[in-house]
Every structure is written in C-alpha cells, then in structure tokens.
Write a protein that binds this DNA or RNA. Structure first.
Lengths: 99, 99
DNA sequence: TTGCAATATAAAGATATTTGAATGTTTGAA
DNA sequence: TTCAAACATTCAAATATCTTTATATTGCAA
C-alpha cells in the first residue's frame, strides 16, 4: 500500500466530521472558537444556551479531536485544533463576509 | 435590516448542509458527481450499494437543493449545483491529492 | 476547610435518521 | 402495446441523536 495514501483521510472519516458540524450549536461553537479560543462561560454568553448543553456539545467535539481543552485557573479554554475543520470554518467565515 | 445580509447563509442553513454531507454515501455521491455528473446506475457501479438506497440519498440531496436531476433518455444525470457544497467538495478533493 | 464559581457527566424521554423490502413509474425498443 | 431497463417511492423496524433535568467534580478565595 502506498505510504502516501496512509495520511489520507477517508470519506468515512470526513463524513464523521461533517456529521459533527451538522448541528447549528456545534457549528457556531467551532466558528466562535477560531483564533484565540473561548471558555465555556463565554460561549454561554454568546449563544444564550444552557451550560450543560454547551458542555455536552464540547465533549462531542473533544471526543472527535476537533477541539482541545486547556485549563486556565477556574476557566477552561477551548480551541479548534483539527486542520480540516479549521479550513472549513475559515471558508464559512469568508463566505459570510462576501455578498 | 441590511439587504446585503439577506443573501448570507445562516449557521442553521450551513449546519443543515453539513448534516446532509455527514453521511459517507452522500459524501461519496457528491464528490463523485463533481464535474460532468453521473447517472444512478453509474453511482451504483461505483459504490456497490443497492439502487433504492442510492435513490433515497439522491432524493435527500435533491430536496436540499444540493444536486439537480436531468433526464437523458432512460437515464437521469445528477449534478452538484449548490455553490457552497461545490466549494467544500473541491476542498476535500485537494486534501486528498495532498500528502 | 468551607463555599462558590466554572465546568462535566448521567440518565431518560422525545425525536430523527438509516436501512431493507416491496412496489410504483417512466422511457425506449421490439 | 407490451416488455424490460432505469429510477423513484413508501413504510416499518432498528438505531442514533438531542434535549432536559439532576447531580458531580474541580479550583480558588475567604
């Protein structure tokens, strides 16, 4: 097997990513996290959704390696770390700036 | 309200798109359709999945305005017509060529 | 070391998605 | 006008996802 192909992400894996992004809250969270990241209470303020709901969606994003959590005192800062997801989020950002 | 914003796609709509792409078969179909498009039996040959299943997923893609069907004799050719989806599919294509 | 603020986890019910199997429709050719 | 090929639709069962509510955990300050 071609070793170059080993690095390639499969359609199955890509679809997994899209499925995760296929929820408005998670998509908003991911886009909001682009750049410096945010802590949970910031996201809560932004979205006006109950905290457990946000934590649950963050847990899903974490489990898939899309975001990473880092403690800062009593807060926890989340960032987007998945390369493909970063590209997609930036694509959306550009789309929103257009028109 | 800003008339320019009216053209902007919302997170809700974008998430809808990702949800649709978040299924391996649909993602494969969309990527396979890029360019000249394909008819159902071509897709069937490509994916080795039962025909009704393919038609069902095509119906979902059609309902969301992601693909369009055009009859050609006894075949029906499907193409991707959704601008954002085309961009995303091309992004994936580029990713797969890399490494 | 007690209490609060920030975040995480669990469980249950409601809802949505996926699939397989059966059946319908339309087209072109004989 | 009948048949076969190509495609679409329907329905029900299995499975997965989402939301709510309640309860844990962790770190910091008093």
């Amino acid at each position: 097997m071609d070793i170059k192909k080993a690095k390639n992400i499969s359609f199955e894996e890509e679809a997994e990513i899209f499925k995760i992004l296929g929820h408005p809250m998670r998509l908003k969270i991911v886009c909001g996290l682009l750049g410096e990241g945010l802590c949970v209470s910031d996201i809560e303020d932004c979205l006006g959704e109950p905290q457990p709901k946000i934590s649950q969606h963050l847990a899903i994003l974490r489990a898939k390696g899309i975001v990473r959590a880092e403690r800062e005192g009593q807060n926890i800062r989340y960032r987007v770390v998945h390369p493909l997801v970063i590209k997609i989020a930036k694509l959306l950002e550009r789309e929103k700036l257009k028109d």
